[in-house]
Write a protein that binds this DNA or RNA. Structure first.
Length: 428
RNA sequence: GUGAGCGUAGCUCAGCCGGUAGAGCAUCGGUCUGUGGAACCGAGGGUCGUGGGUUCAAAUCCCAUCGCUCACCCCA
């Protein structure tokens, strides 16, 4: 009993406290607003799923599934994993609820925590948050991809994310990609001895990932490698070309990056990534792409799909580095009462003000008047409602505005009317 | 999983050629009994990350360990 170990948050998890939480809420609210103008609707998904869902969709051999998932045995011995991302869950839900019968494309967005057991660093946590959107349906029209990217960039623009850069690529389809991968592998074998150990290993396991390498000494070699854009099949080439036209039509600035590959197996054709200012080496705030085979892979009808996931932690980090500040809504009225005789009146008026939607602080115990004013000030209240014996006797309450010390008397109905007008006037 | 840097009060840090733990800010109280932000006075708050070693004596020197941070890796 004497030995008390400090209990702390698990490595890679953290508490998001006020006032930071206000910035988070604001960003998530902005995403909802923008997404809904594009016809997307909220979907709430489980935090954990059968391990198999992720193994089959993301790929059993990927790092995410192979070594980063929080997987455990449930009491009935089934294997469960905390979700490392949500696209797989959206696809699962799409199939499970027969959403292919819904009219048009199914457009869904989600937000919430994801879990990956990596070594934490700037912009990377074991419990991290994503805001994502998915479009599923029969069509793979490039306009769908373009609209998703437009929506994404509109959101970033709206929240004032600095120095955003959109990179797009096409990694081909199940027909042309394997041929390219084989070609790439052969080329890589020729230069194997000039590559680092990681890249050498990937020649056999996943040659595309070599393109991602940051090693300075490998850069000149990688630049000489065959590029996917020269080896797409006709359909994929067309798709990518039309996508670029669609982006220009919408005035979306982008940069083609032939080395952009994704680490999840389900991606096909369009892939993209957005980077922003103020981050460490984890500078991607969003990643996504097309996944036309995913629903079928999970046992549904053949379905096209595209989506993205925004790393909320990183967006917030970037906004904060950019000195983004929110004026907290704060406390509207601090109710200061004088002594036990005035207390019942204070309780009632506080309730009335709260019912009218104002943020109200009511002292829980008697306090010297001077002290309570000081407290109101430090709590950031805009007004102090003074309830002393005079006020109780007359039924008129004194409202003091802290910013300029001005005070007026009101009956309780006139008080609410006045506060509502004031609130509108100040824009607060 | 690998590497590097850093661990003293809630926060920012001082003390570190060994000699019984400090400041500023914050918090709480007082000066101040119906009118705030200031000033002044005072209080609470620390197993100096943890364990071991050297020593008469360790926040300080040595070793180990844990934690945090950043980078590799991976990715949002």
């Amino acid at each position: 009993m004497t030995e008390k170990k400090q209990i702390r948050a698990i490595k890679g998890t953290r508490d998001i406290l006020p006032p930071d939480s206000a910035l988070w809420n604001w960003f998530e609210r902005s995403a909802r607003e923008v997404f809904e103008t594009y016809g997307f609707r909220d979907i709430r998904l489980p935090i954990f799923e059968q391990t198999d869902l992720f193994a089959r969709s993301i790929g059993a051999d990927t790092d995410v599934v192979g070594k980063e998932m929080y997987t455990f045995e449930d009491r009935d011995d089934s294997s469960i994993s905390l979700r490392p991302e949500a696209t797989a869950s959206v696809a699962r839900a799409y199939i499970e609820h027969g959403m292919h019968t819904l009219p048009g494309n199914v457009k869904l967005y989600y937000m919430g925590p994801m879990f990956r057991r990596e070594r934490p660093q700037k912009g990377r946590y074991r419990q991290f948050y994503q805001v994502g959107a998915e479009i599923l349906g029969q069509s793979d029209a490039p306009a769908i991809d373009a609209e998703a990217l437009e929506m994404l960039m509109v959101l970033f623009e709206r929240v004032g994310l600095a120095q955003t850069k959109l990179y797009v690529n096409s990694i081909g389809c199940k027909d042309c990609r394997p041929k390219y991968v084989e070609l790439l592998r052969e080329e890589l074998r020729n230069v194997k001895d000039k590559l680092g150990a990681d890249s050498q290993r990937r020649i056999e396991t996943n040659p595309l990932r070599v393109l991602d390498s940051k090693l300075p000494e490998e850069q000149s070699i990688i630049e000489e490698l065959p590029r996917i854009s020269d080896h797409l099949c006709e359909a994929c080439r067309q798709h990518f070309a039309t996508l670029q036209q669609e982006l220009s039509l919408r005035g979306i600035a982008y940069e083609q990056n032939w080395r952009l590959v994704r680490g999840l197996d389900y991606y096909t054709r369009t892939t993209f990534e957005v980077t922003a200012a103020g981050l460490g080496s984890q500078n991607a705030v969003c990643g996504g792409g097309r996944y036309d085979g995913l629903v079928e892979l999970l046992g549904g009808h053949p379905t096209k799909g595209i989506g993205f996931a925004i790393g909320t932690d990183r967006v917030i980090l970037s906004l904060q580095e950019g000195e983004k500040r929110l004026s907290m809504p704060g406390l509207a009225v601090f109710v200061a009462w004088m002594n036990s005789a005035t207390y019942p009146t204070a309780v009632k008026i506080a309730r009335t003000l709260r019912d009218a939607g104002f943020s109200v602080e009511l002292l829980p115990e008697e306090m010297k008047f001077k002290k309570s004013l000081g407290l109101a000030d430090r709590l950031g209240a805009r007004y102090v409602l003074i309830i002393g014996e005079d006020e109780v006797a007359s039924g008129n309450f004194t409202l003091k505005r802290l910013s300029d010390r001005e005070q007026k008397k009101f009956s309780d109905s006139a008080l609410i009317e006045y506060l509502q007008l004031e609130g509108r006037g100040s824009g607060a």
